[in-house]
Structures are given as structure tokens and as C-alpha cells.
Amino acid sequence: MTTPRRRRPHPKTAQIIELARAGRTTDEIARTLRAGRTAVARVREEAGIPPTPRTAWRKPPHPKETQVRELLTEGYSNAEASRRTGVTPATAARIRESAGIGPATIPPPPRPHPRTAEITALLAHATNTAIGHQLGVDRATVARIRQETGTTYRKPKYRSVEEKWADHVRLVDGGHLEWLGERSSTGTPAMRYQDQWVAPSAVAFRWGKGRDPVDQVRAECGVRHCQAPDHVDDDLGRQRTREQLRYLTGRGPRPERCRHGHLQADYGRYTPTGVAYCNKCKQRERS
């Protein structure tokens, strides 16, 4: 009768038993001691140590746990710690909770505005309001970027109203001039010179025609608020142009008086197509 062969003890039996009694799982002991899982389970069974309950299992620490903890302790949010380390926000939240770290104290950095570069380029040359109108952005955004960059706008000293006007227009396609300065609440270009409000279109008209405008000055080129001197006209110029159109289309001279007897030399006007009408009668109809 042969005697059963006795199994030799594992060389790390004592260490396995010590870790098992400390509550470590079989997998943890195998990873720590670089021993086979089957061998660890056998030693545990021979020593009469039951498996560690699932409630006591511990997940291995995240490879970047130390780095994440440092950021969270400094006051950064889960999202910022995630962005800086590459872990998921859920992992950062788990590390915060397990370490007992309080809520973030450092506010997240503001998202860069998509037109930050364009705004920055204009800060030294225009006001927040002017930049906002030019780029179609909120002037509060311009103010924030100005504060972040520390850029100061120094108001230039102009020798004439024409010089200031010329410094606030920009040539665009088609020979039109775009207004870059201030605007009224309705979006109409406006300019302040020597404590007085001046209509930029009136300055453009004087620049091109060499005289003061009569009544309202408007762009006649089809581009709203165009400031090109050759593209704007006053009421007198518009009426002359429309009168010429009336003759060119064969309508002939307008009547001396309207059907209500108003003298057309004083009250006569023309539509953009050259049709004559009495402005006195039209004002009466509106009232």
C-alpha cells in the first residue's frame, strides 16, 4: 500500500495567511504577492480562513487617484479635475466622496468667446459699445475680455468732426462705408463731438456735396446706414433725382397745384419711381 504524497507548503504561506486574516481578498493577495490565485485559495482553505465577504471588497486605487485628490483638495471641481487628468467626471466624484473632500471652491474658468481674437484686436481702438455693434456681440462680453487682457481704450483727440467720422468708417465690398462707431437705441449711427450729438450721415453728405443737408440724409445705395459720401443724399437731392426720373419716363412736369389747391412748388414731392404727390395732403391724411 502506497502512502499518499504530501504537498509541499507554498513558499509564501505565512504572508498569504497574514493578508487573508487582514481581510484582503484572494485576488488582492495574488496580485500583491505575485502568487497564483489557486495557490492562495488553497492556503486560505487549509488555514481555515473564509473568503472575504463582498461588502469588504476594495477596488484597487485609480492610477491617477493621488493627482485627482490633490486637485480636488485645492478646490477644483470634478469637471476641472477630469479635464486636467483625463479621468471621467464620475471617477473624480467617487474620489471626492471616498476622500471626504468638500465642494469645489475655485469657480470654473469662463469658456473662451468664439470671437475673442477679433474683440482683443479692437480693444485699444474702440469702446466696448462700438466693438459690440461692429461684431454683433454683447458689450458685457467685451468689457470682460478687456478686463482680462488689461487693455485700456484711450479716446483720441480729433481736430474736426470730419476727422472723427473718417476714423469710424470702414470700406467694405461694393465701395460702401460701414459705420463702426456708436449707435442709438434704434441702431442708427450716432456720433458725439464736442459734447453734441452729430448724425454721421450728415457729415458724409457735407464731405461729398460740400453743403449742409436739407432735412433727412439717407443712404440711397440700398445698403442700410451706408456712410459713403457718394451714396447718401438729403431730401432736396432725392427730389431732384426723382424729378429727373419723372421726365425720363415721359410723365412730364407736375401740376402747379394739387387737387386741393396746395402750391406744389412748396409741398410737391416725388416717390422713388418719379410719381408726384402733395406732401401737405399726405400729412393731413396721416393725422
Rank of each mutant, 00 (worst) to 15 (best):
M1T: 13
T3A: 14
K12G: 04
K12C: 11
T13A: 15
A20N: 05
D27A: 15
I29R: 07
G36D: 15
A39T: 08
A41L: 01
A41H: 03
R42A: 12
V43K: 05
E46M: 11
G48Q: 00
I49M: 11
I49S: 09
T55C: 12
T55N: 13
A56D: 15
W57F: 13
P61T: 02
R69Q: 14
T73G: 10
S77F: 06
R84Q: 08
T85W: 06
I95T: 09
R96N: 02
S98L: 14
P108I: 09
P109Y: 03
P110M: 06
R111A: 14
H113P: 05
A117Y: 01
T120W: 06
L123F: 05
A124V: 00
T127K: 01
N128V: 01
T129D: 12
A130R: 07
A130W: 02
L135I: 04
G136T: 07
G136C: 05
R139T: 13
V142P: 10
Y153F: 08
Y153K: 02
R159E: 14
E163R: 06
K164Q: 14
D167I: 03
G181M: 03
R183D: 02
R183T: 01
S184R: 09
S184K: 07
S185K: 13
P189E: 05
M191Q: 07
R192M: 11
Q194N: 14
V198Y: 04
A199K: 12
A199V: 11
W207I: 14
G208E: 01
G210V: 03
D212C: 04
D212S: 10
A219G: 07
V223I: 11
V223W: 09
V223C: 04
C226Y: 00
D230Y: 11
H231V: 02
V232W: 06
V232I: 10
V232N: 00
D233C: 10
G237K: 02
R242S: 09
L245A: 12
R246S: 06
L248M: 14
G252D: 09
R254P: 11
G261D: 08
G261R: 00
L263P: 12
Q264H: 09
A265I: 12
R269M: 00
R269L: 01
Y270T: 00
T273P: 00
T273S: 14
A276W: 15
N279E: 12
C281Y: 01
R286E: 13
